[in-house]
Computed example of a mutant assay.
Amino acid sequence: MSYVFPPPPQAAVAIAGSDAQFPVRRIFCVGRNYAAHAREMGKDPDRDPPFFFTKPADAVVADGETVAYPPDTENFHYEAELVVAIGTGGRAIAEGDALTHVWGYAIGNDLTRRDLQLKARDQGRPWDWGKAFDRSAVIGPLHPVAQTGHIGTGRISLSVNGVLRQDSDLAKLIWTVPEIIAILSQSIALAPGDLIMTGTPEGVGALVPGDVCVVAIAGLGELHTTIGEPAAEPARHGLPRQPAEGVL
């Protein structure tokens, strides 16, 4: 098969203790899956059906990398999360069978342009510009279930420059990992390589250049990210011209 230009490299996540890589197909994210975080976002934390948004596979950032402060935001946030890696696909997966589809677990940081997200939310628009931008999915090495077992409880925390900002337990997830997989697979067919970011606890907040962000989950270690200076602004071309005065 020939292509009109070389296809992009396969996005992948490291595997703990191995030189192998886990190829990433899609990234699904669960919105407001901790009650206290729902409250701090101004929403009712009642157990409504979960909702999902996505990030592109090439948004993945590895542990230890520097992420430049992104453009078009003045309110750039961290969100500590448990990441679930799907190893066996399926549609309409029964909750009781869901964990057999899990390959492993990792630590994640769902980087968010909060001002853009909230503006879109208030206008009833998709969250893509607030959530699905370049280098917005920091994901640490995957730990195979065969080594760690399944993870449903344990401390999840995040610190910025050594100051604790988020501190909770995975047991406080409103929707558990088996429930998330069962509900998500009712709408789409999950496939090997899919990742699920399961939601963040309360305590989200802003990052600025120079910050060092560390996420920790019991049994999975730590995930480190440094926030760099903004990249140079590219020249803006092709923007729509303002209409002449009096022209609508």
Rank of each mutant, 00 (worst) to 15 (best):
D194H: 11
E229I: 03
G64L: 12
T226N: 02
G140R: 03
G154K: 00
A106G: 12
V30L: 02
R39V: 12
G87N: 07
F76H: 05
P192S: 10
T225N: 12
I151S: 13
D110T: 11
E229T: 11
G96W: 12
V145T: 15
D63T: 10
A12C: 06
R114D: 05
F51E: 04
I151R: 11
L99Y: 14
N109A: 11
R32L: 15
R241Y: 04
P126T: 10
A244Y: 08
G108I: 10
D44F: 05
G42P: 03
E179I: 07
P56H: 06
S185W: 09
G246H: 06
G89T: 10
G219F: 00
A85L: 13
P178R: 06
D48C: 10
P56R: 02
D110Q: 00
I139Q: 00
P7G: 08
P8F: 06
T100D: 15
G64V: 12
R39C: 10
I174H: 07
T148K: 04
G228C: 01
G228K: 07
S185G: 13
A11S: 15
A191P: 02
L184C: 04
P56F: 07
I181N: 06
C213V: 14
A94T: 10
I180Q: 04
A80R: 07
G130I: 03
L142N: 10
A92P: 02
A231W: 00
K131V: 04
A189H: 02
I181W: 10
A191N: 08
R236H: 12
D19I: 08
R47Q: 08
H77S: 08
K131W: 00
A171H: 14
F5C: 10
A35P: 07
P23Y: 00
I86T: 11
F53A: 09
R155N: 14
P49I: 06
I156A: 09
G87I: 13
L239I: 09
V84K: 06
V160P: 12
A218H: 05
E81V: 11
V138G: 06
L220I: 03
I183Y: 13
A68D: 13
L239V: 08
S159C: 14
H224V: 11
W129L: 14
A231Y: 00
P240M: 06
A191Y: 01
E74I: 08
K131H: 01
E229G: 03
D72E: 13
P144L: 13
R125E: 15
N33S: 09
T88N: 09
L223P: 05
H237C: 01
I181G: 08
I227Q: 09
E65P: 08
P9D: 05
R114C: 12
I15W: 04
W127N: 00
Q242H: 10
D167M: 01
Q117D: 05
P8A: 10
V61C: 02
R135D: 09
S187K: 03
L207S: 05
A120M: 07
P141Y: 04
T66A: 10
V13S: 09
Q147D: 15
T153A: 14
I86C: 04
P23V: 01
Y105K: 08
F5Q: 13
Y69K: 08
T198V: 07
Q186F: 01
Q242S: 15
A80C: 05
P49G: 00
A36K: 14
Y78L: 03
G89N: 03
H150N: 12
D167K: 01
T198L: 03
L164I: 14
A38W: 00
I151Q: 11
D58G: 01
G96S: 15
P201I: 02
